[in-house]
Design a protein around this nucleic acid. Structure first.
Lengths: 219, 219
DNA sequence: GCCGCATGTCGAGTATTTTAAACGTTATGG
DNA sequence: CCATAACGTTTAAAATACTCGACATGCGGC
């Protein structure tokens, strides 16, 4: 292709169905009606995955050994990446090619809760304030954490197991989960799937105390 | 690429590790050590899968809407196909891209048994001759079948459940399983995973009687 | 408001994949 | 024995993916 004939004018190719174009031999495709399988929108998948890890196109590109332009084009579904490229890109974070293609990409359930949203499940001199509406289908173990000013866990890689929840007791914590960042004040809380990349940082000037809970579905 | 500079002289790229070459920006790849994920030898995978379906490169190519050359190159790992191409190719038979990449590609277990290989598990006036050495780990239900001369089941698509076994009682049957074809004579038998595409044909001039068994692990 | 920095997109050039056609081989008939 | 057909492989040309550099925008600090 010399120059002018770029088939790509501006518009996205086929964002919905996820089938790639390739208007070639005019009258090909005899047997199957095309569009059998899945390959649901690799572009959106990659973008979601990347942002969930808090990476920019350039950062990911550097990690993966490709250029940012490539990432951009792929995410726009302007190209159908070769397995080699896609593999390199995915090596940027811990997931296999097959897993990436299977990934659920589900609408994120409620993650952040305001102090007033916690549910009181005890009474009298003791107060148990429950995080999350539906206790059923959840699995938790609590912990007590303290963050000095400036403390930072750094990004966590997917741990692929369990869930995580916590309540800020004192101080302030900046929590990033799956690309969303939020500053939580005393009384606020969080609840998310541990597989989502997450990060705790104390941007304040005093210690931050959190009652947190983590992991395995032990009961 | 004009012409002469074909990087591909003759040899296969990297049949073992399954990582694709792309000797480009010289000193790229900073973060991860490359070779994290899998992508195990797409070429061999495709070839195995194709032959198991009894398709030639050209047949598959026609179904998929690509050229036979493409199939050839992919199977030799001379290229790293784009998702679009690979998807088109896989649309040729009923499997998803992710499933294809996950596929086990296990060393086929024993499929064909000679008459003398059947194990007698009864005695006296009654004779139960068992197909397959290890009854454990198998799940069977028997049937009685008869094939008129020329009868042909045609190719079966993957049924994704259970196993299948049978013994030829009289006549002759030509059985194709996962790309291998064999003519079975009276007393001979078969045992295979139903997910493998298979086909029965009676090339003889007399009826063929088979005692067969199929499917679900019911006991 | 302006600057510096980061981000995502675009255009042109290069590298790679895919096509189309031909080759060498093997099997099947006549 | 030759013709025919089918198969997998190969090669140059066409089409696509990828790189490199530049652009426009957005954001935070000063």
């Amino acid at each position: 292709m010399a120059k002018g004939a770029t088939k790509i004018g501006k518009g996205v190719v086929n964002p919905a169905a996820g089938n790639f174009r390739r208007a070639h031999g005019a009258a090909t495709m005899p047997a199957l009606p095309e569009g059998e399988g899945d390959t649901p929108d690799v572009g959106a998948r990659l973008r979601a995955f990347r942002t969930m890890h808090g990476l920019s196109q350039r950062e990911l590109a550097k990690r993966a050994g490709v250029t940012n332009g490539t990432i951009s084009l792929i995410e726009q579904n302007r190209v159908s990446p070769s397995l080699g490229s896609l593999k390199k890109v995915l090596d940027g974070f811990p997931i296999s090619l097959a897993d990436f293609l299977t990934l659920e990409l589900k609408p994120r359930s409620k993650v952040f809760y305001q102090a007033k949203e916690l549910r009181e499940i005890a009474s009298g001199p003791i107060s148990f304030r429950l995080v999350g509406r539906d206790t059923q289908g959840r699995a938790i173990q609590m912990m007590h954490e303290r963050y000095a000013p400036g403390a930072d866990t750094g990004d966590d890689m997917l741990s692929h197991i369990g869930e995580e929840s916590g309540i800020v007791v004192s101080g302030m914590i900046e929590l990033t989960v799956g690309g969303e960042t939020r500053k939580l004040m005393p009384g606020d809380a969080y609840y998310f799937d541990s597989r989502l990349p997450h990060r705790f940082r104390n941007p304040g000037t005093i210690d931050c105390v959190i009652v947190s809970a983590c992991c395995p579905p032990s009961f």
